[in-house]
Write a protein that binds this DNA or RNA. Sequence first.
RNA 1: GCCCCGGUGGUGGAACUGGUGAGACACGCGGGACUCAAAAUCCCGUGGCCUUCGAGGCCGUGUGGGUUCGAAUCCCACCCGGGGUACCA
Length: 822
Amino acid sequence: MSDDERYDALAIEPAIAQRWYDEGTYTLADDHPGEPYYALTMFPYPSGDLHMGHGEIFSLHDALVRHKRMTGHAVLNPIGWDAFGLPAENAAKKRGADPKQWTYDNIEEQRSSIVRLGYSFDWSTRLHTCDPEYYRWTQWIFLELFGADLAYRKDALVNWCPGCQTVLANEQVVDGLCERSDDPVERRPLNQWFFKITDYAQELLDDLDTIDWPERVKTMQRNWIGRSEGAEITFATADGDDEVVVSTTRPDTIFGATYFVFAPEHPLVAARMGDDAEYAAFMDAVSKRSEIERMSTSDDRGKRGLRLNFDMTNPFTGEAIPAYAADYVLMDYGTGAIMAVPVGDQRDFDFARQEGLRIDVIIRPTDGDGNLLEELDADTMTEAYTGPGVMVNSGDYDGMTADEAKAAIIRDVESKGWGTGKVNVRLRDWLISRQRSWGAPIPIIHCGACGEVPVPVADLPVRLPDDLDWAVDGSPLALHPTWKHVACPSCGGDAVRDTDTMDTFVDSSWYFLRYLAPNDDTQAWTREAADRWLPVDQYTGGVEHAILHLLYARFFVKALRDRGHLAASEPFQALLNQGQVILDGSAMSKTRGNLVVPAEVYDQYGADTLRGTMLFASPPEDDIDWADVSPAGMHKWLSRVWRLSLEHGMPDTADVGSDGDVATLRKATHGTILAVSADYEAKKYNTAIAKMMELTNAVQAAAHAGVAGAAMREAVTTIHLLLAPVCPFITEELWTRLGHVGSIHDQAWPEADESLLVEAEVSVIVQVNGKVRGKITVAADADEATTIAVATGDDNVAKFLGDGEVVKTIVVPGRLVNFVVR
RNA sequence: GCCCCGGUGGUGGAACUGGUGAGACACGCGGGACUCAAAAUCCCGUGGCCUUCGAGGCCGUGUGGGUUCGAAUCCCACCCGGGGUACCA
């Protein structure tokens, strides 16, 4: 074979890739026929060139997209960049670069790699969240939420990352550390902007049942939202001067509430304790205890407590119970105060033992069927009892099960005006202020006379100034000499802009909507387009966004729906989380020095090999260890396809070779179409490729058997069509070389001729006592008696049947016969 | 601790809703052909053990039990690995 005929990916791919980009081949025409299909992949963050993770996710996504196009869908496949964020600012500070320049340089590098790899994005949709044309509408959404009372400012103890010099959302704090910089997060009281995501907690929980997402992601969201049912009950101080509301999930255990605990920061504690020296020392000790220690995983985290100078009254027993402040009660969960039931709560139990407090038994354990078990003994029990039971020592509620008592007590609490049944959620409102400057400015003006004044929509965008000094300590935007000074839009007096920017997760919470109208400078998107395309049919991306991005985007869609901007309740109908690309068992990273980049692979073997390797390596959800895969193997197979295609795929009218060999090949061809089509629908690309390899082997075998002509051309053409979504370049090139007109990617997906797959005979497994002893061949429509007769006639089967008595015979038509012999 | 998800050859992974001799396909490895040689390519072999070397037998899907005519697949207990989460009242 001459050099010209050898498979040389590097000689064919770049030109095709450039042509697709230059000609806008994959721009979706407005009048494109077919059912709308919105395929979305998480837009990249421009931190440098593409990494292998992008290679995997985009290869997966593009195979899906190209397959959908070939099956007749109008596929919306947009691309953009999540381009605001701290890394740009850090690079600016470290190297004196302009964040904008740094960002755009990286975007250009990534764009070039994406094009080179043949990913068929619609470039007309391209957007960058850092462009004023984009963040203008991010600001508009902020104002929409502000208008709906879903954006508000409050003083709160917030998470402060000293490394990033900004506050963080709860979702961005992982084990007490900043998810980005790993610095220990501090708690600081600050006045900050929040989005009221908690208003949607119930719906965010309920609608998880309507979407086709991996179960573990749904579970993570459910846990994060953390709904629990209980009650809020008012306790009075023993002197009757103050009332305090507690939140509990176990109102049934209220007769066992033998003491009361406040969070150390609780206002009533401060009010009552004043400048008590012991209290001051206690507060000092508590505040020194870092967040990370408070959240530590060790079991021996002691509970710090302080007996307060007053008591509380248990409304049900009328008894005065001692009040404590302790750090195991958190000010920002529930109401910051609890009724402590040591018999039924492990933390209360631990604290009671530590402080020598009374433990009252108010429940008698039962088993799952309600049968009474041994009574608890307050003196000897070693841990709280949290299982099922019936109430004892609980007044009128004695004899009720815990569940019955819970309902009854909530009812009585409500009728007596002591409180209400209450659903509690763990989810907190989303803190979106950031004291950074490479982000979308919060479009609010603070006026001494008018308060918080929203920037008029007509004045959007609130632009970042071009002359920020990125080298300053602190926030460049806040320290800019003039930017923040403006006239109040309401009264015209002197006022200042809010100098914080929005969390970049705000930018990414709606980009899939902007893709519907990326160049519209009159509106963020159109209602018609949103209703046509949403929800996204298939979203692909990493599981690291299971809570953050995926929860925020769901919240945005619901809030925007309620403002009349779209009809959908969920942004992403189906979600696929691809695995990570790792090397030798650990994540790739520059600092580890184990980085493999896509460019290395496509410069050596070509983009098709990279794409094929990624998809063949494992099911999409599994991690790929690059040390275990073989781009060389994939390249070898593509070379075989290339060679066999050019040798046997040229136009020909008549079949050559024996009828049997031709029939075998055609059967393989059409069987492969059937099987591979099913695999594509199920996104099982690894087995789809394996089946294409089998067909390739069948072509090779047919060639050895002397088959040529139409059946051979049909077989190799089928491989090309089935492979086109995975390896778009080699298939495009072969399509042309084999004399077809147009692009293979515009072809209809092949359909199997199932009449070719009908088998006259089937092979049937024969078992004796469940062990396989033979394999027979019978007519496909053979009846049971015939099948049994043939099975009995098999020599090896007969040997095992011996003289035994057949007590039972199981026949699964077309599959197996099992003789049970005694 | 709690909640998920997994444990299949040397490796990545196959195996329909329990039913075609578990291990497709590929990598790796071994052997052969071609070649002066190498590369490339093509062919054969490749879970373990036994074997009278036959289209034979036994064992084998983390471990131990169980259900079934039949279990990688279902049930129970345990071991190991990964992920999530955690003083949330």
